[in-house]
Design a protein around this nucleic acid. Structure first.
Length: 801
RNA sequence: GCCGCUGUGGUGGAAUAGGCAGACACAAGGGACUUAAAAUCCCUCGGAUUAACCUCCGUACCGGUUCAAGUCCGGUCAGCGGCACCA
């Protein structure tokens, strides 16, 4: 009988849904396992094979954990706010609510057709007002605690999307969404003070089990550096110029200073600076450039020397000039640097161009050619002379600076505050009222959710204003504090908002009193295992860790970290080895695969195609191989014989296979787990039979990968109950070993022969057997044995001359 | 530029903690079954040499450590990812 995957898969999907097989409740009698996958953006295009791979990993782990007795929470939801729905609305006039609901229905249907063991009673939609009520609640808590604030700054602005973008959304000077060039614009922006949590976010990494490269990326993103702040006296002004440096020990080599064009010291001393015209002109030029032009282009250094304002090197007492230049940024450190041209390439280029002295203070390079950035002996540096250890010389200088009150130890982070508003409709309204008398006032908690009003026109305003600004009913309100007429904030939150806490809501998705009950959070949190794409390990993960740490600090959650473990799957590339994209026409539709081969084949293939963590190209013919595998599993029914324990010839094979599949699943080595099952299947097929005991455990091993076919066979063959309620098979370590094993025999490290020996044989015994071997004996004839090595159960190596 | 990762047959990939390189699949070639095709089953499948056995070479490249290196060390090249005038 042929395997009719279409009917069988439908049958079991319906069974799971009707019986709520994977819906879970708190059960303190069992250990819990919370497996989390990144919830999708429900795009109109529907699901992608990448989704399948991303979800199949934890799906397989979760199904196995369930058989091992865990209470498994494996939820799904939709991250549904965002630009595509809004752009679609602008184009078609269809309200984002309508298209989003359609897309969610479509996505849900597709996910069900793959047979994922999601708890469908806990589905989340970030655009649901019962959900975003709590997103707004968290925002208000941050506002209350001074972590949400408004500031006027130059922002990255996309003239095409008409939105302000965070640095993260405008990498490379291009808009993340439409790829237009970004320009700089002065605007009032909402920020979340994530920088307050730099150190905690960094320290927290030592408590969690993330893949090493994920930790590293987060560390780089936070970008901690240690150094010193040093205050330089000014000639021509009373105040001091404060700089940040990582190498205070090079202070003797400082021959000039550079400040950012926007540095406030310029305006404070505009009367003293004689060439203010030139300075302002340079500043205006810089303002025109985008962040990209300022930072990305390797170009010649430019700048203007301040005329009438200079500084004093605090350690040499020499007067040194101050320049403004755009290679110093206002956003890092203090916006001012001490320049050490001999040992910093940028300072070197600048000094060379402007004819400034270059003083060597670290020996080892040739400063007539380029800056020397390596280590070496300190020279021309007073008390530091002769020191060769960087750490020691920095410590000595720091001590001196602190004693003299010139400077102190300091720490800097590259991470910047999070620009937290978009001038868009389809997002969570920021629950703030602007009152002429009271300033910014929080919408009272009991008025949440602050609902998105219905609008007709989704086009942003001409000046990048939110479409909400055109809704008078929405904008005009009364101040919650003084009761006088006031205006609502019309910006909405960025897409990262809803996904920053969704894993908490899954614990208790219908709670109307809190984001989740204490009881639910205590039982389910933290997420035991979070899997997703590498592209989300910095922004999304750092943002959500930040929110979580804040919620922990205000007592709203019970763990300091949200995710105990994080892994990432590799991309599925197109059959041509290129990244899948519509324009390249190399996109594989998972539903087509289900149509032709069935959902089990699709699932098995995405896990078998290669190392789960690495990118691998799609191969249609390899999919066929997985289909063949499942057909051969189905055909085992034709060669089934009775037996309630493993037969001798399969005992150790079964135990080894169970051991391998068990540990491989735990380590996400799905490809080798499947290979082990293929191997033993080949053994059964060529042997000509399988008995009931063997088949039962084989099916249980295969179940997490291919649940439909295994449910069906398990039921049809009458193994009792359902496979999703079965117990995960155990193995006996002692039975994984064979009595007789084959070992390799090498002479001088080269393989010459293989011999069978008993597994527990000792070296002397083994060597005796080996030397009795005809071939080895002849190889050794006339040679002198220098050394004999026996690696137990593996090989013998005889060194002979 | 800095940091990190990777490099294995025609292809995807295996190879505890230095111990038989190429598991498992795909593709290809040959055969069986079939009127034929598909499906299925069997055989071959890193390279050189050979009728065959044997033997030699082989994990990007060069060198080293070791009885033994895909694995460890030093250097080179290539590809990928992250950060990037971060002081």
């Amino acid at each position: 009988m042929k395997y009719n995957y279409g009917a069988i898969e439908q049958k079991w999907q319906k069974y799971w849904e009707d019986n709520k097989t994977f819906d879970v409740t708190i059960d303190t009698s069992k250990p819990k396992f919370y497996g989390l996958v990144e919830f999708p953006y429900p795009s109109g295009a529907g699901m992608h094979v990448g989704h399948i791979k991303a979800y199949s990993g934890l799906e397989t782990i979760g199904r196995k954990k369930r058989l091992e007795g865990y209470n498994v929470l494996f939820p799904i939801g939709f991250d549904a706010f965002g630009l595509p729905a809004e752009n679609y609305a602008i184009k078609t006039g269809i309200h984002p609510r309508v298209s989003t609901d359609n897309n969610i229905a479509h996505f849900s249907d597709q996910l069900k057709r793959v047979g994922f063991a999601f708890d469908w009673s806990r589905v989340i939609d970030t655009t649901d007002e019962d959900y975003y009520k709590w997103t707004q609640w968290i925002f208000l808590k941050m506002f209350e605690n001074g972590l949400a604030f408004r500031d006027k700054t130059l922002v990255n602005y996309c003239p095409s999307c008409k939105v302000v973008l965070s640095n993260e959304d405008s990498q490379g000077g291009k808009c993340d969404i439409c790829h237009s060039d970004i320009v700089q614009k002065s605007k009032d922006v909402w920020y979340l003070r994530i920088t307050e949590y730099c150190e905690q976010l960094l320290q927290g990494l030592s408590e969690v089990d993330y893949l090493p490269n994920i930790k590293l990326q987060q560390e780089n993103w936070i970008g901690k550096s240690t150094g010193a702040f040093v205050n330089f006296e000014l000639v021509g002004a009373d105040e001091k110029l404060r700089i940040y440096t990582t190498r205070p020990d090079t202070l003797y080599g400082v021959t000039f200073m550079v400040i950012a064009p926007e540095h406030p010291v310029i305006d404070a001393n505009s009367a003293t600076i004689k060439n203010m015209d030139a300075v302002l002109e340079y500043r205006a030029e810089c303002a025109k450039k985008t962040e990209f032009e300022r930072t990305q282009l390797v170009k010649e250094k430019t700048g203007v020397k301040l005329d009438g304002l200079s500084a004093v090197n605090p350690i040499t007492g020499k007067e040194i000039p101050i320049y403004i230049s755009d290679y110093v940024m206002m956003g890092y450190g203090t916006g001012a640097i001490m320049a050490v041209p001999a040992h910093d390439q940028r300072d070197y280029e600048f000094a060379t161009k402007f004819g400034i002295d270059i003083i060597e203070v670290i020996k080892g390079g040739d400063i007539s050619k380029e800056a020397y950035t390596g280590d070496g002996e300190m020279v021309n540096s007073g008390v530091l002379n002769g020191m060769t250890n960087k750490k020691d010389s920095i410590a000595k200088m720091l001590k001196y600076l602190e004693e003299k009150g010139i400077g102190e130890k300091g720490v800097q982070y590259k991470m910047k505050d999070w620009a937290f508003n978009r001038q868009r409709y389809w997002g969570e309204p920021i629950p703030i009222v602007h009152c002429e008398h009271c300033g910014m006032v929080a919408v009272p908690y009991e008025e949440l959710p602050l609902r998105l009003p219905k609008v007709q026109n989704f086009e942003p305003g001409s000046d990048g204003e939110s479409p909400l600004a055109k809704i008078d009913d929405f904008v005009n309100c009364t101040c919650p504090k003084c009761g006088k007429p006031a205006k609502r904030e019309t910006d909405t939150m960025p897409q990262w908002a809803g996904s920053s806490w969704y894993y908490l809501r899954y614990c208790d998705p219908k709670n109307s009193e809190a984001l989740a009950s204490k009881e639910a959070l205590e039982y389910w949190m933290p997420v035991d295992w979070y899997n997703g794409g590498m592209e989300h390990v910095t922004r999304h993960m750092i943002y959500s860790r930040f929110w979580h740490k804040f919620l922990y600090d205000i007592g709203a959650v019970n763990t300091s970290e949200p995710y105990a473990k994080r892994t990432a799957q590799g991309l599925i590339l197109g059959p041509d080895g290129e990244k899948m994209s519509k324009s390249k026409g190399n996109v594989v539709d998972p539903l087509d695969v289900i149509e032709v081969y069935g959902a089990d084949v699709l699932r098995v293939y995405t896990l078998f195609m290669g190392d789960y963590e690495k990118a691998a190209p799609w191969s249609d013919s390899s999919v066929k191989g997985c289909k063949r595998f499942l057909d051969r599993v189905w055909a085992l029914q034709d060669v089934l014989v009775d037996g309630d324990s493993y037969r001798p010839e399969f005992t150790s094979k079964m135990h080894k296979m169970i051991k391998k599949v068990t540990s491989d699943i735990d380590n996400m080595k799905f490809n080798t787990a499947i290979a082990a099952m293929m191997t033993i299947l080949n053994d059964f097929t060529s042997f000509g039979s399988i008995n009931r005991a063997e088949l039962k455990d084989f099916l249980i091993m295969l179940y997490p990968f291919a649940p439909h076919i295994t449910e069906e066979m398990y039921e049809a063959l009458g193994f009792g109950g359902y496979i999703h309620d079965a117990k995960w098979s155990s193995y006996d370590e002692a039975l994984c070993k064979d009595d007789e094993i084959e070992i390799a025999v090498q002479i001088n490290g080269k393989l010459k022969e293989r011999v069978m020996i008993s597994a527990d044989a000792e070296q002397a015994e083994v060597l005796e057997i080996v030397k009795a071997n005809e071939k080895i004996a002849s190889e050794l004839a006339g040679k002198q044995i220098v050394k004999e090595i026996y690696v137990k159960g593996k090989l013998v190596n005889i060194v002979a001359r």
